[in-house]
């Protein structure tokens, strides 16, 4: 019926350590070294936007684009925190959104890990100190954070690397709790 001709090269990015893109290089290394833990190979992710300018959400959405295709690394975005292993929060955390972040985190089953995505989520960024921001705006002040992914906003590959690292963090937690 219709197809996309060779538009901007191949559809699906090749993940190899020979890539010229440093993020794809790092991803290739991470994938090679990842453990056989189920949390490192099949990671269910829930996102909460606590105050970003929708840029982080757009990039999270684009991790599902045919070029990047996060599902091939075992990463699935799920509808409910009850199904999720990893929570990814973008920020700065606003006063009005603080409760949603807390409740979503509490709804998740153990073991779990949190990724703070974007400059705002990591430190509060430009908004730190504003009257509508909870504390400095950093997610770590509201819930425990395992992985920080800086960026304005972080690219889809940076987000994927952050999620994979969070998967390894869960693996560590499940070892120590056993």
């Amino acid at each position: 019926m219709f197809g996309i001709s060779s538009f901007f090269g191949k559809h699906c990015d090749l993940i190899t350590e020979d890539s010229s893109d440093p993020q794809i290089k790092e991803l290739a290394r991470l994938l090679k070294a990842r453990s056989s833990s189920p949390f490192a190979r099949s990671i269910h992710v829930r996102m909460v936007d606590a105050g970003s300018s929708n840029d982080v959400e757009l990039e999270e959405g684009l991790t599902g684009s045919p070029q990047v295709d996060a599902e091939r690394f075992g990463i699935h975005f799920v509808a409910s925190p009850r199904h999720a292993d990893v929570l990814i929060v973008s920020g700065p955390v606003t006063v009005n959104a603080k409760l949603s972040v807390k409740k979503t985190y509490e709804a998740m089953a153990h073991p779990k890990a949190v990724v703070a995505a974007g400059d705002g989520a990591c430190t509060g960024g430009l908004f730190s100190g504003g009257y509508a921001i909870a504390g400095t705006g950093a997610v770590s002040e509201v819930i425990p954070v395992d992985v920080c992914v800086p960026g304005n906003p972080p690219s889809p590959y940076a987000i994927i690397i952050g999620i994979l690292k969070a998967g390894e963090a869960i693996q560590q937690k499940s070892k120590t709790s056993r």
Binding site: L126, A132, I133
Partner: peptide
């Protein structure tokens, strides 16, 4: 997502506020 953006811009110089305006909507 109310971040008090208009308020944070107050007191900044005109070009200092540009990165803030860029954060209104990605």
């Amino acid at each position: 997502l109310h971040r008090g953006l208009e308020n944070i811009a107050e007191g900044k110089s005109y070009s200092e506020a540009v990165p803030l305006v860029e954060q209104i909507a990605g």
